[in-house]
Nucleic acid binder design. Sequence first.
RNA 1: CGGGGUAUAGCGCAGUCUGGUAGCGCAUCUGCUUUGGGAGCAGAGGGUCGCAGGUUCGAAUCCUGCUGCCCCGACCA
Length: 440
Amino acid sequence: MRLSRFFLPILRETPKEAEIVSHRLMLRAGMVRQESAGIYAWLPLGLRVLRKIEQIVREEQNRAGAIELLMPVIQSADLWRESGRYEAYGKEMLRISDRHEREMLFGPTNEEMITEIFRGYVRSYKDLPLNLYHIQWKFRDEVRPRFGVMRSREFLMKDAYSFDLDAAGARHSYNKMFAAYLRTFARMGLKAIPMRADTGPIGGDLSHEFIILASTGESEVFCHSDYMDMPTPPADIAFDDRDVMQGVFEEWTKRYAATSEMHDAGAFDALPEAQRVSARGIEVGHIFYFGTKYSQPMRAVVNGPDGKETPVQMGSYGIGPSRLVAALIEANHDDAGIIWPESVAPFTIGLANLKVGDAATDAACADLYAKLEKAGIDVLYDDRDERPGAKFATLDLIGVPHQVIVGPKGLAEGKVEVKNRRTGAKESLSLDEVINRFTA
RNA sequence: CGGGGUAUAGCGCAGUCUGGUAGCGCAUCUGCUUUGGGAGCAGAGGGUCGCAGGUUCGAAUCCUGCUGCCCCGACCA
């Protein structure tokens, strides 16, 4: 992408409403624009990151055997009356009516709808287990949205729903999502710690929140220091093996880890001081096992091997990709701006032409740009007629992992500079070496 | 939902107390000079002063009502 042709409305000053660093940087880097309280437009740079995150989430859901579909954002009130949640959900649910005065709502979550879909087609235990997910916009009319997309009213959520014949099967489904979540966050370069959690309005009796540690986190968390450095399940782990999955679950839950709501000060204080981690955290995922809470009232039943109708055992599993964008920035930034992990970066390479109009510099940049793009690398080519300082500041701000800096000074020696955004390390390479570095 | 703020150009702000028809910095546009860490000079454009009433010869400024947004608390992917 040529920057001169891109839409990147960077702000030099910080809008005053932005309190936390991720919100400030997202506004300054031209990633989002607030349209109403807690409602944001995603600008091209922000959307690129959101899509990368979404894709990682999708790949790991698929790997764990979940199947993608897409449900609507607008739902019928009647569906929610079946589960009893239409009244129970309260003011957080945005209720609307259509031209025929039918009561509708903007979906805050989809347990009811997925249960309705399931019961419409599935009759036999032989079709189980089943895990269906979608990545769709949700709306929760928060009393007080804040921190940009971290706590917004409209937000993107991946929500998966598992269906099993019995509790043991449901447990396995839960464990698969548990392992998939560990992999998902690790691929984004985040250390997410599963913590026993309150189930809230979703209901049920088994639940874990996945928390990443960040000083600006909204919850207070306590955990064992071992969590700072634990191996993530490999891509080829046996998701279908119940014992293997149970092993992953046990390994990751046997040490102390809890949010303040579930905190047991006695148990935590019993740990040696060096192993106690007390910090603030951001919830980036939440998984629930709630049995027949919805299948019972909504009559989602299958015929078991014994020929009897049995309500299915269900669980639901959420990740907030839009919140993750902010969480990633909280975990990856410095004074100059964002530092994207490569897996979610909007562009992999930022190519800075320090002297637009200089024949040699232009030619070198055009050559590098063409070859890198041809190799399938996302390159943001800063071909604007700006001074070098402005280009460095822009690339630092938007956090592109690798900067390739081309100027007359270096080219005189046949060299360009390659700078690592995270480490700040600079190397002087020839054009060919640059190509080899990124395409090898 | 309780409490506290705030609303003036794209962004950040002054002007409001004491009424006289809107200004500064950055950004934008033009020209010249510059070009390895957010350049300099000269010029230019851009605002129904949140909205609606009212007071007044005259309202960004005073009065009334409304709305948006932000912050603090109780709730949450």
